[in-house]
Amino acid sequence: MVTLIVATTVDPASIGPTSALLSMPGWHPGPLLQGIPSFVNDEVRLLKHDNSIVREDHLDRRWEEVTGEAVDEVIFLSRHTAVSNRPSLTIHPIGVPHLQEGNVPPTGGKPGWAAPPNPRIGPWLRLLKGIAEAHNLTPEFEVTLEATHHGPETNSPTMFVEIGSTEEYWKRQDAAQAIALVRYSFECID
């Protein structure tokens, strides 16, 4: 079983952590998924596409169909926006269970639906907080668990890991590096 990390080139808060991850040892090109390039590092697969993440439904199932590899979990790298514009590092499950059938989700998903939450949400949040503190990102950046509020649809346990809340912060390399270090550190202690 593999971990599927999903990134997009249209989001600066996805580009930074992706670049930081791919600069770490062990990555090599993987198979194409319907024209989407992938990268492989042990049991991790990173997809790097040019579309909106919240609209890329069933990437886990599509990966399994193309490669034959079962997906254990999906992790999306994305940006967070908030009215407060406060710098933040967030983790959250996905889905729009609060919407009724017939409502149109403004940012992907299916009304009344939520993906199974990734069981790493809690451990990753604690590790992200420790890394953010060690790299002097706090108290400038708030490290927080966010409520679910968008898609895409997946069948695998899923979470979003995000940098917020404005373009200035989405492009911060220190925040991107902190997210990459969570992934690397978690694999070392997993």
Rank of each mutant, 00 (worst) to 15 (best):
L4C: 10
V6E: 01
A7T: 15
T8K: 02
T9Q: 12
T9S: 15
T9P: 00
V10Q: 15
V10M: 14
S14F: 11
I15K: 08
G16Q: 11
T18E: 12
S19F: 02
S19T: 05
L21N: 03
M24Y: 02
H28S: 15
H28G: 11
P31K: 14
Q34G: 15
Q34C: 14
G35C: 08
I36S: 08
S38N: 08
S38T: 13
N41K: 15
D42F: 08
E43P: 00
E43N: 14
V44R: 12
V44S: 08
L46A: 03
H49I: 04
D50F: 04
V54T: 09
H58C: 10
L59V: 05
L59H: 05
R61D: 09
E64D: 05
E64G: 01
E65Q: 11
E65L: 05
T67M: 05
T67R: 10
E69Y: 05
D72K: 01
V74K: 04
I75R: 06
I75M: 15
F76S: 02
L77P: 06
S78K: 03
T81K: 15
V83R: 12
R86M: 14
P87M: 06
T90E: 12
P93N: 05
P93I: 01
I94G: 05
H98E: 13
L99P: 07
V104N: 08
P106V: 06
G108T: 01
G109N: 13
G112H: 04
G112M: 05
W113N: 07
W113K: 11
A114L: 12
A115W: 03
P117A: 15
N118M: 12
G122S: 10
P123L: 00
R126A: 15
L127M: 15
L128S: 09
L128C: 09
K129D: 14
G130F: 02
A132S: 08
N136M: 01
T138P: 08
P139E: 09
F141D: 00
F141M: 06
T144L: 14
T144F: 06
T148D: 02
H150Y: 03
H150K: 07
G151V: 10
P152F: 00
S156I: 03
P157G: 07
F160H: 11
F160W: 12
V161R: 01
E162H: 00
I163D: 02
G164C: 04
W170N: 04
K171N: 12
Q173F: 00
I179W: 01
L181W: 07
V182W: 06
R183W: 14
Y184Q: 13
S185C: 14
F186I: 04
C188H: 12
D190Q: 12
